[in-house]
Design a protein around this nucleic acid. Structure first.
Lengths: 267, 267
DNA sequence: GCGCGATTAATGTGATCACAATGGGGAGGT
DNA sequence: ACCTCCCCATTGTGATCACATTAATCGCGC
């Protein structure tokens, strides 16, 4: 409710677009196309369990879909989500939605109000400052740990992601930019094999994803600069100090752009 | 499965004691005392919703109960938990258990294996090192932020918790020690009014709770030292630098004791 | 016309059932 | 005595229903 003030301004039409989830719930929608689904014998064709790579539960694919959508700005800060609404959108029953939403609430990607309504958490100046602190503390450390495990092959992959960042930035593809930027950073961090730390960082990214999208949606990505090249160069030289500095600088620049955009220039 | 190796050694009988949850599900157990609860008309008396302070959902009280139990060592690292088992223990249906467990898994207080079995995550040396790093990074910072909001009244409360720590340590009350120690730290951290950072720290504490309990259970709390007095003195003097140093030293001492105990001396 | 109250719709929560898959234990064979 | 295979108990998952509560909407009185 409170957070709805954030989206009072006129807004681009990306609000509810489906991000990057490739759910193939074909055999389930045909069960549900009847307006009033009866339970009698309709529960037979259950658990077809799409085996894309390995057995994946429904709530897990729902979770990943929602997670990506939040991470890359598919939701507006302050916008509400409902269990039944999402269930209908994704063509599943409300049950796996409940579990996915509960999980995302625990990760602070969603927020449950006192009235038990669920919404994308609006950003506050205090939370934003804490996010910056956490990022600048954890991410350079994670990159430093990863460095020893990053060889030429990994550097190549990381560079590919960086080029995707530049490409998206050039054509103003906000969502593409955010996805490529995420992949760039986490391609580095994942090599640290430090999942306890990585989980903290992922939770942080989930919290500023919608907010970041809002900033880019308003002021574009054209004036963005990053320190990705400096980070790659540091990785090639195995220069730990330079790497940490590059990551820290990248965070500062990016978050400063977002913060200036939304929090300072007000509406 | 793997983690069960950790509890192979002989062990004290605190394994499954109920920690500090005061659930009053009296009116619900009488519904369930029949061995095979039928659903026909038994679903009438639902949602009595004990209103201790404010309306509290069942899965929320289940969550808090489980959380405390994990935090203060009510479970052994590597031990398995089952939805139906917990449901029976707590006298509720498996449904609120599912939500609470899902939430705790997201907070890394529980771990779901590939076979979908849920267990208390066993500790590894790598995870332990990351936990120490996170604690030493976040907690002194949190204390520093809290200092400006800590007056004589708060210092009094904090000192009370410290005395409880000493008392429990003197009589070897492991669980009492852990609870008092938690209250001491979080009485400080909460004053920072930085819930984004606080959430990260709480997740970390949940992860080493069972492990800490194991160490104290084996070697007692008699040889423990802490820097609580130094922290309190720093709070009284409003000495930010000393406060951060005291918190950092307290973490180092405590975690070192635990780590030495379990990871180094093997069995 | 315009607030204001009662009715209705919608939402989260809890319970129960059905099902797939894993795991353990016992029987049978070597 | 040990290993192997099969069967059954147990577990998590998904669906559906019922309910309490909150939000929305319509209608009535001023």
């Amino acid at each position: 409710m409170i957070g709805l003030l954030y989206c009072a301004a006129a807004f681009e039409p990306y609000l509810l677009e489906v991000a990057t989830k490739s759910m193939s719930h074909s055999e389930r929608t045909e069960t549900r196309k009847a307006t009033t689904p009866r339970r009698s014998a309709a529960a037979l064709k259950r658990m077809p369990q799409r085996l894309g790579d390995i057995a994946l539960t429904t709530h897990e694919s729902v979770y990943r879909g929602l997670r990506n959508r939040i991470l890359f700005g598919g939701f507006l800060p302050g916008s509400a989500v409902t269990l039944r609404g999402l269930a209908e959108d994704m063509g599943v029953s409300p049950m796996p939605i409940r579990e996915a939403v509960r999980r995302l609430i625990a990760e602070r990607a969603l927020k449950m109000m006192d009235n038990r309504r669920v919404l994308i958490p609006p950003m506050t100046e205090e939370a934003f400052e804490q996010i910056i602190f956490s990022r600048k503390t954890l991410e350079p450390e994670l990159a430093s740990r990863a460095m020893d495990r990053i060889g030429p092959a990994e550097i190549k992959a990381i560079s590919t992601h960086d080029r995707a960042v530049d490409r998206a930035m050039a054509i103003g593809d906000v969502e593409g930019y955010m996805q490529a930027n995420y992949r760039f950073h986490f391609a580095i961090y994942e090599r640290a094999r430090a999942d306890t730390l990585l989980a903290l960082v992922e939770s942080i990214w989930l919290q500023f994803g919608p907010f970041m999208r809002m900033a880019y949606g308003r002021w574009g990505t054209s004036s963005l600069e990053d320190q990705h090249q400096a980070a790659i160069a540091a990785l090639e030289r195995k220069d730990r100090k330079a790497l940490k500095a590059a990551i820290a600088a990248d965070i500062s620049q990016g978050m400063n752009f977002i913060g200036e955009g939304i929090l300072k220039r007000s509406s």
